[in-house]
Amino acid sequence: MRRPDGHELSLGSADEHDTPAEVDAAFRTLRRVAVGHIAVFTGVIIAVPLLTAALDWWSQGRLFGGMSPMFAMTACGLYAFFFVICLAAATLSNAVEERMLGGPAREAPQDEEGTLPP
């Protein structure tokens, strides 16, 4: 089918489509990934202040010099944790999408390359 903008022709077999069932599957898997990660995230976020009540050592112990474990965690550790959890979630979500939607890269464009006039 020829479209007014002519892109369709140049894309040829490289055109991409999803079906509702596939998208729904990827959506639910991604939702599971997101909920799992948000649970870990919430747990840590709640644990950092809450440990004060459970454990005097958390806020009064001394880890390096005058720094309590809680201070070290809030001043540095939490940011590292955020970064790590974000990186993990993003990599996993991208990997899931790549595997659950679309196909493995088709070689069609490369195949055609050989037949193109020089």
Partner: peptide, 13 residues
């Protein structure tokens, strides 16, 4: 024919 996929992220690899 309707289809429903329910797939663990870990299983993909």
């Amino acid at each position: 024919v309707r289809v429903r996929y329910d797939i663990d992220p870990q299983v993909l690899t």
